[in-house]
Structure formats: structure tokens, C-alpha cells
């Protein structure tokens, strides 16, 4: 077991936790806002995947990774706009449409990739990093924690901004009203539909950005179906975090570490089968749900479309 504690292992585990955790964090933060507003966003997996595809394509054709992120945001919002139109404006079943959008994004990106690149997978140049002075020079943990892509720090800043906004601004309260008792918000002069639309679009932007990070920074290429359930993990993170962005961050890092444990263990020379490791995060979620399920609480109007005047 000594091998597990080597510097190489720790460093690759930390790196993995961040590289795999950031997309989960972004997806989780996005989903959290949707859920607060009362929209269960099952389509987030599709938003991530479309963001990954469009983000990669933009980065590849403009040769700018930041344009790529912008493309990812756009891609995610495109799918989210469809979701907002169908589920918020028209009030269609959120689960049916969510599954539909995910399947559609999977099929469409696979087709697009096939007709553009056939069986090749072009690579992006490795992204630039923002090395924080001094901190990066720390042994073992320095390069992993403090020598990351700038987007990582932006995502962390977003956690703080959202935590503050939910707690201290009007936004937090109105969002909660839209998710708990939309009719009350409506009577009080709030715009339930508008608020929910914005929340869903924000989810799409975050999920798309997470997907683009996955493709552009994490992998450096786009592969069909590459999100592999990350969006669904984002949904779980949002549900477990009970409305607190900091908990989403914590969960994302734990999931990220578990997802990348395989690589880290290979670095350490251990050969535990990858499938066993891949079970860990999901087993952990089930365990958490079993132990703390009484405390898991969801907004009262989650998943229910709001229609003015309807009972």
C-alpha cells in the first residue's frame, strides 16, 4: 500500500479530481439553479454533450480555447432554449422532454462528428495554464492544485458568487418561491415563467461550459457520447447539495477524484479493474441517500409546470 501514497499518485489524484470535477461542478451548479426554480432538468446530459461538441468545434476552427468555451456555452444554451420553450412555456412533461433532448443531442453530435471527421479525432493543442506564483512551486500538491486552466478559478469564483446570491440577494428568495409555490410568486407580481426560463438557460450555459471544458481541456478532443453520464451526476449533486453551491463543489471534487482514481492507481502501479473503481461514486451516492435520505428535500413544485389559474 505504500505505493499508493507516493507523490506521483497524490498528484495525479488531485489533478484528476479537478479535471474530472470541474465539469461536474458546473453541471451541478446549473442544475441547482433549475431545481430551485422548480424545473427538473433531465436534459442536462444532452446540454453538456452538445456544449462539448460545439465547444470543441469552435475551439478547433478558431484555434482559440476561449472561443471554444463560448461555443460550449452557446451549444448548451441552444438545447436549454428548446427545453425552456417546451417545458416552461408550453408546460410539457419535463422528464419526457429531458430524455428526448438527451437522446437527440447524443444522436445529433454523433452524426455531426461522423460527417465532419469520419473516424478521425483531431486533437487541440494543450491549453495554457495559469500558474499561481509561489503556490505552484509547492511540492506534490502545487502543480495539481495551483497550475490549472484559468477557467477552473472562474468556476470556483462562481461558487462563491452563487452562494452569496442565493443567501443575500433577492434572486435567491424569488427562485425559491418559483420552486416552492409558483402561484404565490405570481400573485406577488413575480414572473414565474421568465424566472424559470432564465434558470433553465443558465443551466444550459453551465452544462455547455462544463462539456466544453471536458472536451477542450480535459480530453483535448471530442468523442461522441464522451460525457458518459456526467450530466446525471450533476443532477445528483444538485439534489444532494440541498440548494448550497459549496456542497456541489465538495461533491464534484469527491466524484471527480473517484472517477479519476483509475488513472491515479495505474500511475501508482496498482491494477484494480477500472469497472470496480467506476462503481465507487455511484455506490457513494446510494450510501449517502440511504444514510441521509430523511434530510434530502426537494422544492415542492419541482417537475410541475406552472400554468396561471390552473389548480
Amino acid at each position: 500500500m505504500d505505493a499508493l501514497l507516493t507523490a506521483a499518485f497524490v498528484s495525479s489524484l488531485l489533478t484528476g479530481a479537478i479535471v474530472a470535477g470541474i465539469p461536474l461542478l458546473l453541471a451541478g451548479l446549473g442544475e441547482q439553479m433549475s431545481e430551485k426554480a422548480g424545473v427538473l432538468n433531465i436534459g442536462i446530459e444532452g446540454m453538456m454533450l452538445f456544449g462539448a461538441y460545439l465547444g470543441f468545434l469552435t475551439a478547433w476552427s478558431t484555434e482559440s480555447i476561449w472561443m471554444g468555451f463560448l461555443g460550449g456555452v452557446g451549444g448548451g444554451m441552444l438545447v436549454a432554449a428548446l427545453m425552456a420553450l417546451l417545458c416552461v412555456r408550453l408546460g410539457l412533461n419535463q422528464i419526457v422532454i429531458g430524455i428526448g433532448l438527451t437522446l437527440g443531442a447524443e444522436g445529433l453530435t454523433s452524426l455531426l462528428h461522423h460527417f465532419q471527421f469520419s473516424r478521425t479525432y483531431p486533437r487541440l493543442p494543450s491549453p495554457d495554464r495559469l500558474d499561481l506564483p509561489i503556490l505552484t512551486d509547492l511540492p506534490v500538491i502545487g502543480p495539481s492544485l495551483f497550475g490549472r486552466h484559468p477557467l477552473v478559478y472562474l468556476a470556483l469564483a462562481l461558487v462563491i458568487v452563487l452562494a452569496w446570491a442565493y443567501r443575500h440577494s433577492n434572486l435567491g428568495l424569488t427562485l425559491r418561491a418559483a420552486g416552492e409555490k409558483p402561484a404565490a410568486l405570481d400573485v406577488a407580481g413575480g414572473h414565474v415563467t421568465l424566472l424559470r426560463t432564465v434558470a433553465v438557460l443558465f443551466t444550459g450555459a453551465m452544462a455547455g461550459l462544463g462539456g466544453a471544458y471536458m472536451a477542450n481541456v480535459g480530453a483535448g478532443l471530442f468523442i461522441p457520447f464522451m460525457t458518459g453520464g456526467a450530466g446525471f451526476i450533476g443532477i445528483v449533486l444538485a439534489m444532494l447539495a440541498r440548494g448550497r453551491p459549496v456542497w456541489v463543489l465538495l461533491g464534484a471534487l469527491i466524484f471527480g477524484a473517484a472517477l479519476s482514481l483509475t488513472t491515479a492507481l495505474q500511475v501508482a502501479g496498482s491494477n484494480v479493474p477500472t469497472d470496480v473503481i467506476q462503481m465507487l461514486p455511484f455506490a457513494a451516492v446510494m450510501l449517502v441517500l440511504v444514510v441521509w435520505s430523511r434530510k434530502a428535500r426537494l422544492p415542492a413544485a419541482l417537475g410541475q409546470p406552472y400554468e396561471r389559474g390552473a389548480r
Binding site: 419526457v96 422532454i97 430524455i99 428526448g100 433532448l101 438527451t102 437522446l103 437527440g104 443531442a105 447524443e106 444522436g107 445529433l108 454523433s110 452524426l111 461522423h114 461522441p224
Partner: peptide
């Protein structure tokens, strides 16, 4: 994967 698109539009 085209069938995915077909099913998605169907939904």
C-alpha cells in the same frame, strides 16, 4: 445513432 435522433424528435 441516427435512430437516437428519430426517437428524440418522436418524444
Amino acid at each position: 445513432d441516427f435512430t437516437l435522433v428519430l426517437v428524440a424528435t418522436l418524444l
